[in-house]
Design a protein around this nucleic acid. Structure first.
Length: 376
RNA sequence: GGGGAGAUACCAAAGUGGCCAACUGGGGCGGACUGUAACUCCGCUGACUUCGUCUUCGUAGGUUCGAAUCCUGCUCUCCCCA
């Protein structure tokens, strides 16, 4: 993998770049749709490619390991062949499941023992086997196995947790470097910087990660319950330490506003379930603000769902119709909103790149942040 | 014509003397959702001057300290037999 920094915004930390993988190029800043189980929920690969114009999508180690399982994954020849997506894929390691499925797992120095949320069976994840699993899934970018602590963690908890994450990171690096890709294209490993909302821990974590000299770095453990201002300041603290010539990936974030604020602080890559999950639940993000399509006021609004939208669903379907579909729990409603939201998120980062390259990002961002948060 | 069952809030449906402005679903309205156990979850849903008051359980009357619940008349609905 190769990363080339292209332009920097004169008035903020924003920058553009180009990531090159064996499955193609990624322009940064980029938003990566989440496809946990090998599918971006409700969206065909063709729509993802041609309509949303996604450049890279995610998969998830924990979920794909449980279902369909590694045997199938290997027989398929990796996730790209299995799901028919030939652009880059990034897999999360299961570190987030340490957080989101906290009631179903136990942590030890050695690893994490999960009780399957599907059938209750036990599965032990270690930094080593998580590297092996991601080799088998065949993601272009694989993530270190970490503990994602909650945003409300105390300093003491955060410090101990970070220690574990750092020891696990070293084990991940070792295993990764000792093993080879399985399907003939290269893979790269991103460390994850933790440390909760504590500046000294974040600095320590970033320095430790940077010293490992990888091709890219992630910032994890944010947007997990801490105040949004803390998230922004932690991004600043970490990006101050991380090498400038490597991509920075803010995991799991966020709202359109979060994304612009993070780009402004030097983040290059994002992923979030929000456009798809909230879309399925009837929330539509637009340049002019947020629409809750379930609200009664859209019942007889026969205007296009987003006149400024870039995807075919935006012009083709009306608000009234989409409201009807969501109200009726019709699958098509969830699909339309998901496609729209993803296309919007990809438009947002594309436009951010244009503004950065023009040197007008900072002022554009200020205007957009106000508009994007409006409730329509 | 004979026999039987029933009428409860927007719908369906509990409740059969005080803990009932009335269980529970659905519908309606609103909210949440940030490396996806999520087409999920959470509120509100008689009126009002809303820590309280007023009017409700087909309808008119009655019994009782007290009725959606007991009694009587009326209206309507459904089922079975002819």
């Amino acid at each position: 993998m190769e990363f080339k920094l292209l332009n920097k915004d004169p008035k903020s930390g924003a920058r553009t770049g180009k990531l090159t993988t064996d499955h193609g190029e990624i322009q940064t800043p980029i938003f990566m749709p989440v496809g946990t189980l090998g599918s971006v929920k409700g969206v065909h690969q063709r729509e993802l490619r041609e309509d949303v114009d996604a450049e890279i999508i995610l998969g998830n180690t924990y979920h794909l390991y449980l279902r369909p399982g590694l045997e199938i994954m290997e027989q398929a020849g990796g996730l790209h062949k299995f799901n028919g997506w030939d652009r880059p894929i990034l897999t999360d390691s299961g570190g987030f499941q340490v957080f989101s499925l906290a009631d179903n797992r136990k942590l030890t120095e050695e690893g994490a023992m999960f009780r399957s949320h599907i059938d209750g069976s036990k599965h032990f994840f270690t930094p080593e086997n998580v590297m092996d699993i991601q080799r088998t899934i065949g993601a272009d970018i694989i993530m270190a196995f970490d503990e994602c602590p909650p945003g409300t963690a105390t300093y003491e908890y955060a410090k101990n947790s970070l220690g574990l994450t750092q020891r696990w990171l070293e084990r991940c690096v070792k295993r990764f470097d000792e093993t080879e890709p399985k399907y003939g294209y290269s893979q790269t490993l991103f460390p994850i910087v933790q440390g909760c909302v504590y500046k000294d821990l974040r600095i320590k974590a970033a320095e430790h990660a940077a010293a490992l000299d990888r091709e890219g770095y992630a910032i994890g453990g944010l947007a997990v319950g801490e105040p949004v201002e803390d998230m922004y300041s932690m991004i600043e603290v970490v990006n101050e330490v991380l090498p400038e010539d490597k991509p920075r990936y803010l995991m799991g974030v966020g709202t359109p506003v979060n994304i612009l604020e993070a780009i402004s602080r030097g983040v290059d890559m994002f992923d979030c379930v929000m456009p798809t999950r909230n879309g399925r639940n009837g929330m539509i993000f637009t340049q002019n603000g947020i629409i809750n399509i379930k609200n009664k006021k859209w019942a007889n609004d026969f205007s296009p769902i987003d006149p400024d939208g870039t995807s075919f669903v935006d012009q083709h379907y009306t608000k009234a119709y989409v409201r009807h579909l969501i109200h009726s729990k019709e699958l098509l409603g969830a699909q339309i909103c998901s496609i729209h939201n993803l296309a919007f998120y990809l438009w947002l980062v594309r436009e951010a790149r244009v503004q950065i390259n023009q040197g007008t990002f900072a002022s554009w961002k200020d205007v957009m942040v106000k508009r994007l948060a409006t409730r329509l």
